[in-house]
Computed example of a mutant assay.
Amino acid sequence: MLTVHHLGKSQSERIVWLCEELEIPYALQRYTRDPVTILSPPELRALSPTWAAPVITEGDLVLAESGAIVEYIIAKHGGGRLALGPDHPDFASYLYWLHFANGTLQPAMGRNMILGRLNLAADNPVLLATRGRLERALGLVEARLGKVEFLAGSEFTAADIMPVFSLTTMRYFMSVDLAPYPNILAYLQRIAQRPAYQRAMEKGDPGMPLLLT
């Protein structure tokens, strides 16, 4: 049985959502962050040398890294659904946006989160450069969503599952005003209407207000 090990308010929400979109059988093991450190509890750390979620287990397999897990589940359990193949006209766009979340957007948010806690001067050059990188990343998403309904093109794919955490739940750790990005906000409302997303968030983080605006 495929088991998704989900840490509350973490990138592992992507994997729960993916399983719900694919409507595949899976077991969900939920974990709560340490109230002092806000890190993973010991039982989840034992599964991953990085102490991070998500992690999946299946038989003897233990796999971390959300991008790798998404590709594994789609190939192994999803019959290729929610991915675009090399013959699809949007294949390159699918690949770009699938990897954009963890390659560009999430790292930019993480760096801003850390620097924001250091009480640096407002004109600190590192702080300004890091904020600029995040603004460019969000601007790129905004521009893309002004042209297409979903990030890869007209179809909802795994490329949409990857960045939504950064645009929503990550904002519990670092405040980001999305008011200047109306296309992103409209996109998040489209995501919010997906039954699989609703099911996933209720199963993974029941009662957590969703930061969709």
Rank of each mutant, 00 (worst) to 15 (best):
L2Y: 03
V4S: 03
H6I: 02
S12K: 02
I15S: 10
V16R: 05
L18G: 00
C19K: 06
L22K: 05
L22E: 00
E23H: 13
E23Q: 15
P25K: 08
Y26F: 15
L28K: 00
Q29K: 15
Y31P: 04
Y31D: 03
Y31E: 06
R33F: 12
P35V: 14
I38H: 11
L39F: 15
L39I: 01
S40P: 10
P42R: 12
E43M: 04
L44Q: 11
R45M: 13
L47E: 07
S48H: 15
S48L: 03
S48N: 15
S48R: 05
P49R: 12
T50Y: 12
W51K: 13
W51L: 05
W51D: 15
A52D: 10
P54I: 00
T57P: 01
E58T: 05
E58W: 07
G59M: 08
E65L: 07
S66G: 13
G67D: 13
V70K: 02
V70T: 12
E71W: 05
Y72T: 01
I74G: 07
A75R: 14
G79M: 09
G79D: 08
G79T: 02
L82P: 01
L84N: 06
P86L: 04
P86T: 01
D87C: 04
H88E: 08
H88S: 09
P89Q: 04
F91Q: 00
A92E: 03
Y94S: 04
L95R: 15
Y96P: 00
Y96K: 14
W97K: 06
W97I: 07
L98Y: 12
H99S: 12
A101G: 08
N102L: 14
G103Q: 08
G103E: 09
R111A: 15
L115C: 06
L115W: 09
G116F: 03
R117M: 14
L120D: 11
A121Y: 04
N124V: 01
P125V: 07
P125W: 02
L127E: 01
A129M: 10
A129G: 08
G132C: 03
R133N: 14
R133P: 03
R136A: 15
A137Y: 04
L138A: 01
V141H: 07
E142V: 02
R144I: 00
L145P: 03
G146R: 06
G146V: 00
V148T: 15
E149K: 14
A152Q: 05
T157F: 09
T157G: 08
A159V: 04
D160F: 09
M162C: 07
M162P: 06
V164M: 04
V164D: 00
S166L: 07
L167E: 08
L167P: 03
T169H: 14
R171M: 02
R171Q: 09
M174F: 14
S175E: 14
S175L: 08
S175F: 11
D177V: 00
L178C: 13
A179P: 01
P180N: 09
N183D: 04
Y187F: 12
L188G: 08
Q189I: 03
Q189M: 11
A192L: 12
A192Y: 10
A192I: 08
Y197W: 15
E202I: 10
G207C: 07
M208S: 13
L212S: 08
L212G: 10
L212P: 05
L212W: 10
